[in-house]
């Protein structure tokens, strides 16, 4: 009897210890990521031509993500109009489809979908790019040349992301609302005036549009942060980079959806 008691004791202690170690690791990783974010948010002095670098990143992250965002926005708006029409027509309120499309896109679909697509399109590319820079020792080389890669490489990417995503979100919304109009007005035969009038009667500039942009800004910071941190933290091997890229997309997507709930609660309640 005695040995088994000792064994159980041993397993329990071991399990506890491993949990403790894991918790500390998670804590340390978060600390590292936070330090990394603070360092990357500032340009540092003595760094020239930050504007040209920012422009390049806005191109890489924003302009190149444009096609997928625009097409997705158009289709999301069209589908929402179609679905909304079939529900509303049962109550004889099909005129309200414009209002339904606009509100759901401005409040939820725009910020969330554009952030998810951004994570898949631009976030994964960022992680892979930085991971490859690390694997080929470019980041180390830069550090040894006395140039902080967090300022030189990460800061323009972080700010590029923060600038791009809200703009992409706005374009997604415009395309979505016009896509909805295309289906509702041209295909389903709702009177054009009532599509827009209903929408204008219920959409508020601050309450819906500005709050959507605020959500988008938060998502941009989080997604870009996750992407560049995983690139910087990647194992410098091909397998490590592929793992880091996957981690970026998975974690960024989950973070967007979870944060969306929190932000919605805060924005609906507090402000």
């Amino acid at each position: 009897m005695k040995p088994s008691g000792v064994m159980i004791h041993h397993y329990l202690l071991n399990g506890l210890r491993r949990m403790g170690i894991n918790a500390l690791d998670v804590c340390a990783g978060f600390g590292r990521a936070s330090w990394f974010l603070l360092q990357s948010l500032t340009w540092g002095k003595g760094f020239k031509a930050p504007f040209a670098r920012l422009v390049l990143q806005v191109y890489q992250l924003g302009v190149l993500s444009l096609p997928i965002i625009l097409v997705a926005g158009l289709f999301v708006g069209m589908v929402l109009a179609l679905q909304g029409y079939h529900v509303l027509v049962g109550y004889g309120s099909q005129e309200a489809v414009g209002q339904m499309v606009a509100l759901s896109i401005l409040r939820e679909f725009g910020p969330v979908m554009s952030a998810l697509l951004f994570a898949g399109r631009a976030g994964s590319a960022l992680t892979a790019e930085i991971g490859l820079m690390k694997a080929t020792e470019q980041l180390s080389a830069m550090e040894i040349m006395g140039v902080d890669p967090l300022k030189r490489i990460m800061a323009p990417r972080l700010w590029g992301g923060i600038i791009c995503l809200p703009l992409l979100n706005l374009m997604f919304c415009v395309l979505g609302i016009y896509g909805g109009a295309l289906v509702a007005v041209d295909m389903l035969g709702i009177y054009e005036g009532s599509y827009w009038a209903n929408m204008q009667g219920s959409v508020e500039f601050y309450g819906d549009i500005v709050k959507g942009v605020i959500k988008s800004l938060v998502f941009a910071l989080v997604v870009t942060w996750i992407a560049i941190f995983h690139g910087w933290n990647a194992q410098p091997t091909s397998q490590g980079i592929s793992r880091a890229t996957t981690a970026t997309v998975v974690q960024a997507s989950l973070a967007i959806l979870a944060l969306d709930f929190v932000l919605t609660a805060v924005l609906l309640g507090g402000f």
């Binding site: 020239k48 080929t136 080389a141 006395g146």
Partner: peptide
């Protein structure tokens, strides 16, 4: 200080000229 890496570690997005000019432009 300067370190010559085993792989060279050239910045792949810059030309040879810009690679060499990098430290001059930064510092």
């Amino acid at each position: 200080l300067s370190l010559l890496f085993q792989s060279g570690a050239l910045f792949t997005d810059l030309s040879v000229f810009e690679n060499v000019a990098f430290a001059l432009r930064e510092h």
